[in-house]
């Protein structure tokens, strides 16, 4: 039972990282980024290609791949998303959705649909004795590093000027601009940062999950449910809901395997009935 819950926390770490990126992007840009899962997949593939073709190891890939994809994200925002933003939100839905399919198919064409192997970094190959049970060291590392990253984002958002501006712009874009604060300047870095978080989750996933072109689209539907459960645009909510959904689905997998796919959505429906704005969302935001 405890071990299942711990599995859930590790799975939840991926949900939390992805949902966090989606939440800051949605908050700041009002864009639901359907390509988020594709960038997670590209993160995993990026580290696979680096290792396979150039022998670049995990510890280099972990910072490098998110930075490169984050920069690619800023270019994407400048070239396309910014131009579509003044139009109906549907245009950016369709754009990011189409982009996800394109990225997925490009990778599929190059590497096929089968999973590619990615070894665990040798330093984390063993197990850790957690007192009640032993657990693979790599999974413990994933959990720890995710908690640290989510915590760091939280500190930046609540304790720094840029965080205050991002939160202000998310809640009241018009008032923030009327106060003389240039909101547009922060949109590109925030988008790039959200993409980098997705890529980071992808690199972390490579050694413990199948690296294949569909890994992002398999995961992202659940992540959308996580964001809705946490409350659209709520940064804290998305992280908390990420870990919670991880635990619920791991326990569900173990005790009621027949429901494992639907459990998250049952949870989402229940939360929405109880709190229509999500657990940490504000009613007003709807």
């Amino acid at each position: 039972m405890l071990q299942q819950a711990f599995n859930g926390l590790v799975g939840g770490a991926f949900y939390a990282l992805l949902a966090l990126g989606l939440a800051v992007i949605f908050g700041m840009l009002g864009v639901v980024n359907f390509a988020h899962g594709a960038f997670y997949m590209l993160g995993a593939f990026g580290s696979y290609v680096l290792l396979d073709s150039w022998g670049v190891n995990f510890w280099v890939a972990l910072p490098l791949v998110p930075v490169v994809l984050g920069v690619a994200g800023t270019v994407l925002e400048r070239l396309f998303i910014r131009r579509l933003a003044p139009l109906d939100p549907l245009y950016n839905f369709l754009f990011t959705f189409g982009l996800a399919l394109i990225l997925q198919d490009l990778v599929k064409r190059e590497y096929g649909v089968q999973s590619q192997p990615y070894p665990r970094p040798s330093a984390l190959g063993g197990s850790v004795d957690l007192g009640l049970f032993t657990y693979p060291a790599y999974q413990v590392f994933v959990l720890a590093v995710s908690v640290v990253v989510c915590g760091a984002v939280w500190v930046v958002l609540t304790r720094t000027r840029v965080g205050m501006i991002v939160r202000a712009a998310t809640e009241r874009p018009e008032l923030t601009r009327a106060l003389g604060i240039d909101v547009a300047r922060w949109v590109t870095p925030v988008f790039g940062f959200g993409i980098a978080l997705a890529a980071f989750a992808g690199v972390l996933a490579a050694p413990m999950r199948a690296v294949n072109p569909l890994m992002g689209s398999d995961l992202i539907i659940t992540v959308f449910a996580v964001v809705v459960i946490g409350g659209l645009g709520s940064v804290f909510g998305s992280v908390a809901a990420g870990f919670a959904v991880g635990i619920v689905s791991a326990l569900g997998n173990y005790y009621v395997p027949s429901l494992s796919q639907t459990l998250v959505f049952i949870l989402m429906a229940a939360v929405l009935l109880w709190r229509p704005a999500g657990l940490f969302g504000r009613e007003e935001a709807l």
């Binding site: 304790r159 720094t160 000027r161 840029v162 205050m164 202000a168 106060l179 003389g180 240039d182």
Partner: peptide
């Protein structure tokens, strides 16, 4: 926040809210 916006400390990212 309004006072800070006007003085345009803009890019100084890591300044904590003590700056405010």
């Amino acid at each position: 926040l309004a006072l800070a916006g006007r003085t345009g400390l803009g890019w100084r990212f890591w300044r904590s809210d003590k700056a405010l």
